[in-house]
Computed example of a mutant assay.
Amino acid sequence: MTAPRVLVTRRWPADAEAAMAAAFDVTFNEGDVAMSPQALAEALRSFDAVAPTVSDRLTADLFEGATAKIVSNYGVGYTNIDTEAAKKAGITVTNTPGVLTDCTADLAMALMLSAARRLGEGERELRAGKWTGWRPTHMIGVKPTGATLGVIGFGRIGQAVARRAHHGFAMKVIYFDAYPIPAEAAAAVGAEQRASVEDVLREADFVTLHTTGGAENRHLINAERLAIMKPGAVLVNTARGECVDEAALAQALKDGPIAAAGLDVFEEEPKVNPALMAMENAVLAPHLGSATHSTRVAMGMTALENLKAFFDGREPPNRVA
């Protein structure tokens, strides 16, 4: 029996690629550059399965005439895929949740600490040869230990960040989530629920975003909400770029009330708003949330398991559509 033909849109770690090649008739994007919409549309018409990344936008028009049977997304977020159009075309969609929780939570903490303690600014000053030595008023930042952390989106990653903050830095945790959260999950970190995003923003010294993307959360953090944050607060986003109005954030970083921000995701990746790039008090990372070898391999293996289950006639473990 001929193995199903699979297109992998970007290069994966070697271990994951080898496992994929052993299981399927796989084609890798050897150039490892983003595929055009036309190339993605052709792939959906030519292969049995496509394994895109979160940076590949599979819009409704790309599914017209598609004959692929499954899209196995390499990433937990799937707002890059028009799942309704996929369903109409009879195409299953899966993702890779769970395996990147710890690494993304680690990076959220790294951004929080870097922004609070002005590490980006300090390193740039030092490397430029402008550091004149220690003095009591130099690079004064914000102290995370004992502060209040506001978590917006209290799912797997939000809870993982809360554990690190509460147990590692004695932070008080408050949260908002649009969906019910098991009481034991909140109790494990002493987290207190708030009724709205606004309630979290008014109270928290640090705010970290862990919501889904898409239209419902586009510009979740906008000028109005930034204006009600505490003076000296720090905002962290490792969720989705569209959740933050970058122009409004740049203005808030310039004029207040917030002190700093740490961002791993952006509205129009790989482009970043120039006004945001100009802000010394913004720590900017190039979408590194899951960027450890073990996690990127695990993501590939999870995408592979989804494909194996589907083509074996079993329910894929991570079906989203």
Rank of each mutant, 00 (worst) to 15 (best):
N73V: 06
F310K: 03
G289D: 04
T132W: 08
G122Q: 13
E268F: 15
K88Y: 04
S290Q: 04
P180D: 10
M20V: 13
S290C: 10
G141Y: 03
A187R: 08
Q193I: 05
A165M: 06
R117N: 13
P231G: 11
A49K: 05
V6L: 15
T59W: 05
G232F: 06
E203L: 07
G155T: 11
L7C: 14
R202I: 00
P274F: 06
E268K: 07
A105E: 07
L107C: 10
G232I: 11
R10T: 13
G214T: 13
F63K: 08
V320T: 04
M279I: 01
T101W: 07
H287L: 09
A86T: 00
P136W: 11
F154V: 03
P317Y: 00
H138F: 08
A183C: 03
N222V: 11
E224T: 12
L107T: 10
A170N: 09
D32R: 11
P317M: 04
S36G: 12
P136K: 05
A105Y: 12
A66F: 09
A105D: 09
R164H: 01
K230Q: 03
F169K: 08
G289A: 13
V8S: 05
A261I: 07
F266S: 14
R164I: 13
E246D: 12
V8A: 14
L7R: 08
V197G: 05
A68K: 13
G289H: 07
P180S: 10
A191N: 00
R117Q: 07
N73M: 05
L284M: 06
G120N: 13
Y179S: 14
A285E: 05
T104K: 14
L111C: 01
R218P: 07
A49M: 12
A34D: 14
V320E: 04
M301C: 03
